[in-house]
């Protein structure tokens, strides 16, 4: 069990690192497309956290096997009977299927956000001529100043 105790902080730590890195890119990058890529990494890291919750040590994919099939016996052979009795279903230990269902949704939501974001970026490139965040805000500041001048 000591392996699991060592791995737990390491694996969660990697997941939270990806969240922080994705957030950093999404908030600070000057290139709009890289911002969206950072956003995508941030959404995927939320999925990493869910899947980390779902893994059962010694478990297999949540596709039910016949108890007597060769695959089930091969899997059972590497675990002790008490473990299977306690945590297995019909003689086979499975990982938790629910986070997998949730993350299928999260991946599709991430792709949808990316598509709409990129469509907006293409339109921004055509109207402003640039995708650099600071150049755009400079353009808008100058436009605002022109409006004020011709009003005064």
């Amino acid at each position: 069990m000591t392996l699991a105790l060592v791995l737990t902080p390491y694996v969660y730590g990697l997941g939270f690192f990806m969240m922080a890195a994705g957030l950093l890119i999404a908030l600070t990058s000057r290139h709009l497309i890289k911002r969206l890529i950072g956003l995508g990494v941030f959404q995927t890291s939320a999925g990493v956290f869910y899947i980390l919750l779902s893994k059962v040590s010694g478990g297999t994919a949540a596709i039910r096997l016949e108890a007597d099939s060769p695959a089930a016996e091969a899997l059972a052979s590497r675990l002790d009977a008490a473990y299977i009795a306690a945590h297995g279903v019909d003689g086979v230990v499975y990982s938790n299927p629910l986070p997998h269902v949730l993350i299928l949704t999260a991946i599709v939501v991430g792709a949808a956000t990316l598509a709409v974001g990129l469509a907006i970026i293409v339109r921004i490139r055509e109207t402003y001529g640039t995708v650099d965040f600071e150049e755009i805000s400079a353009l808008e500041a100058r436009a605002l100043r022109d409006v004020r001048e011709d009003e005064a």
């Binding site: 297999t60 994919a61 596709i63 695959a71 091969a74 899997l75």
Partner: peptide, 8 residues
């Protein structure tokens, strides 16, 4: 094959 689930 290493994980014993060849239907992947």
């Amino acid at each position: 094959f290493a994980v014993g689930r060849p239907d992947f």
